[in-house]
């Protein structure tokens, strides 16, 4: 069995430099749309292509509420005046007041993950966090099976009717201080499942959210950013308020 040891060592270090340095590898993020300056007619065409009502027109600018984006790429691939696209991954927002996680253990955080009806992809991206590429242990984050040990509740999925009670029980079983990180568009607003009578349409209706991570699904780096924001080690972005950037490159 010793060949495993040598093999492991030979693989070398794969781990991302983020958050010390930005990650530059290709394919680590699906990106997010940005608003742009368009006249009323063009803007209407753009808004009509988006099935998730991401864009709105304000003072001659198209603003993008990226928390609603479901990554269908229609705004970029079929709209006559496509939205701008940004290959970022630091997406986490803090909807409420600055929470200031008052814990002595900012660098040793246990995370309890609850699947409240996700499609499997958010959870798969959470799984990647323990992958050598991301290895969240180096940042002091640990996924724990039990709520009793958890500081952070990470929720994915639109909160189905059948999962709502289980989710609340997990939250109640966690000791304080505790934070809720909602990961993925479905956890934020229900995503494509928002209208379903069998879903709550996001975590907000059930629990208070401290950190929101948009994306369908958010890539692992965005989830890491969310966790860093939750523990006060990175600043949240303020995306809905600054959706417009002039310049920028269109596709």
């Amino acid at each position: 069995m010793s060949h495993w040891v040598f093999n492991g060592i030979r693989t070398g270090i794969k781990t991302s430099a983020y958050p010390r340095r930005p990650e530059t590898a290709a394919g680590v993020t699906p990106g997010l749309p940005r608003g742009r300056k368009l006249d009323a007619g063009e803007a209407k065409a753009l808004m009509d292509t988006c099935p998730a009502e991401v864009f709105r027109l304000e003072d001659g600018r198209v603003l993008a509420d990226v928390r609603r984006c479901i990554h269908c790429y229609r705004c970029m691939r079929i709209a006559p005046h496509p939205a701008l696209w940004e290959q970022s991954y630091e997406w986490a927002l803090q909807p409420g007041r600055e929470t200031g996680f008052v814990s002595a253990f900012k660098k040793s955080i246990n995370i309890c993950v609850v699947d409240a009806g996700d499609c499997g992809s958010c959870l798969n991206e959470v799984r990647q966090l323990n992958n050598p590429y991301y290895n969240i242990h180096r940042l002091g984050f640990f996924i724990t099976p039990t709520p009793r040990h958890a500081d952070v509740l990470l929720v994915v999925g639109p909160v189905t009717d059948h999962m709502s009670l289980a989710l609340q029980k997990v939250y109640n079983a966690m000791p304080t201080p505790k934070l809720v990180v909602a990961v993925g568009v479905c956890a934020l607003s229900g995503g494509v499942f928002a209208e379903s009578f069998a879903c709550a349409g996001g975590v907000t209706d059930v629990l208070p959210i401290d950190v929101e991570v948009p994306g369908n699904p958010p890539p692992p780096l965005a989830i890491i950013h969310g966790l860093l924001v939750a523990t006060g080690r990175k600043a949240p972005v303020d995306m809905p308020a600054t959706p417009y950037q002039s310049g920028g490159s269109g596709p």
């Binding site: 590898a25 290709a26 394919g27 990554h71 229609r74 990647q128």
Partner: peptide, 26 residues
């Protein structure tokens, strides 16, 4: 498990680079 995990992430990145999305949406 780590080796297979590296491979999985490699393929997610290949998908992302090719189509824009790691799970081939859109």
């Amino acid at each position: 498990a780590s080796g297979a995990g590296i491979v999985e992430e490699d393929l997610l990145r290949i998908s992302g680079e090719l189509t824009g999305h790691r799970y081939l949406f859109g």
